[in-house]
């Protein structure tokens, strides 16, 4: 690489800047519009500035109950997060060795990613109907979300273990550590930041999921399903207020997670 920045750099830097604007620009539009005055509508200009629509969010709604659906989404996200971390870690460990059925299981995991979401939703809906089990967010919904989060988790674990040198474990073994001690005191602490990353993916993907949830949630909707229903029949900025709140919540989760990962890494290097 030469020291002087060429023309190519400036062209691409501008392109990158425009891309970031493209990613975040529209999001900031609804962020601003959620502070619309009480008489304001869905588009600019702002008719005064207020937090009217945020209060409106917590009042009893004609459509939907945000508090309860938020609670369900949060709890479901945490359940999916925990299950994704555990199942993906175990599968990642399994794939380090050759075992019978490894290839079909790998392709099934890839299939979980590429099968259109609505097919998963329809399939689970029909399956539960035929089994005579009522779909519920903590049952069929939980499973539906796992089919979306697990492939990401397993692929991340693949990437982690591909770069993980077995010499650390060999060293521990040579020093007399049992397999369990090697796992608990050597392997686990070393891959902890990646596991936290897997957890973040598990939670976020579940918290925002709706395509696989359509037929799988049963009577009680999760938050994304509420929002999806709102897009067709709500015509006030309360939609934007909800968007702002839930996006800020996502940012908080992402920021918090990266904070924790950075803290762990710093402690380790110190």
């Amino acid at each position: 690489m030469g020291q002087k920045r060429g023309l190519g750099f400036y062209v691409l830097a501008t392109f990158f800047g425009l891309f970031v604007l493209f990613l975040y620009g529209p999001m900031s539009a609804i962020f601003i519009l959620s502070f619309q005055g009480p008489s304001g509508g869905l588009t600019f200009p702002l008719n005064g500035v207020s937090v009217h629509w945020f209060f409106n969010l917590f009042e009893k709604q004609a459509v939907g109950d945000f508090g309860a659906s938020f609670g369900r989404s949060l709890l479901l996200g945490l359940m999916v997060m925990a299950a994704t971390v555990v199942v993906a870690l175990l599968a990642g460990l399994a794939f380090r060795r050759k075992f019978l059925g490894a290839t079909p299981l790998f392709y099934l995991t890839i299939a979980s990613l590429v099968v259109p979401s609505i097919i998963v939703s329809l399939g689970i809906g029909v399956l539960f109907q035929q089994l005579g089990i009522k779909p519920a967010w903590y049952g069929s919904g939980f499973g539906a979300h796992l089919t979306w989060t697990l492939p990401f988790g397993v692929l991340i674990m693949f990437a982690v273990f591909n770069r993980f040198s077995p010499s650390y474990e060999e060293a521990a073994r040579d020093l007399g550590a049992s397999p369990w001690q090697t796992f608990w005191h050597v392997l686990l602490p070393m891959i902890a930041p990646s596991l936290i990353g897997v957890g973040l993916f598990g939670f976020s993907l579940s918290y925002d999921e709706f395509a696989r949830s359509l037929l799988a949630m049963g009577t009680y909707n999760t938050l994304p399903l509420e929002i999806y229903a709102m897009t067709t029949n709500v015509t006030t900025p309360v939609l934007y207020a909800l968007g702002t709140v839930t996006t800020l919540f996502s940012f908080l989760i992402i920021g918090g997670t990266f904070g924790i990962i950075a803290l762990i890494s710093r402690k380790r290097t110190a």
């Binding site: 060795r97 075992f99 979980s112 399956l127």
Partner: peptide, 19 residues
């Protein structure tokens, strides 16, 4: 290996393959 792969088999088998 088989025990570690089992949960993934079970989840994807029941919620993806079977449906």
């Amino acid at each position: 290996s088989y025990l570690q792969a089992l949960p993934l088999w079970l989840v994807l088998g029941f919620f993806l393959l079977l449906p």
